[in-house]
């Protein structure tokens, strides 16, 4: 059943969405470079945007735009505009997140001198060790 043609092709948008999502998450997990993490996060978010847009699509439907003369022909099939609108908001949120993330990276780079996760962790561990020592002393 799983290898049925319809199951794969009929849900193609979902498969692509899942692949994109996994790619994004994988980047966040596997890359130590903070900027790459942000990029991964972006891909992850974008996959969701794609997902939303694809579910708004009605087969054979056209863009949901009022004609110039405002005479709506009931026989014309429109795609669902609502998910698209929602995604506009989500995109704004995504951009804000990216911008904030990048701004933080700039500050991190100033403070730590690196943007590699591992190196930052090492620096933090050193700091923690110092703190514990000062506590013991």
């Amino acid at each position: 059943m799983i290898f049925e043609h319809n199951f794969i092709m009929g849900h193609l948008n979902y498969w692509l969405f899942i692949m994109l999502m996994m790619t994004g998450l994988f980047i966040v997990i596997s890359r130590g470079n903070l900027i790459k993490k942000i990029v991964g996060l972006n891909i992850f978010q974008t996959s969701v945007f794609m997902f939303y847009i694809s579910i708004g699509k009605v087969a054979g439907g056209t863009a949901p735009i009022f004609p110039m003369d405002m005479n709506i022909n009931p026989s014309i099939l429109y795609s669902n505009p609502l998910p698209h609108v929602l995604i506009l908001t989500a995109i704004v949120v995504g951009i804000a997140t990216t911008a904030l993330g990048l701004a933080l990276i700039v500050r991190i780079r100033e403070a730590y001198g690196t943007i590699e996760d591992e190196e930052i962790s090492l620096i933090e561990a050193d700091e923690q060790k110092l703190e514990t020592q000062s506590q013991l002393a």
């Binding site: 998450l25 966040v28 997140t97 904030l100 993330g101 933080l104 991190i108 403070a111």
Partner: peptide, 16 residues
């Protein structure tokens, strides 16, 4: 300065 890294972590996690 660790506040920055904490905020960044929070950002990644929160966004996910």
């Amino acid at each position: 300065k660790r506040a920055l890294k904490a905020a960044f972590n929070y950002l990644i996690m929160g966004t996910v």
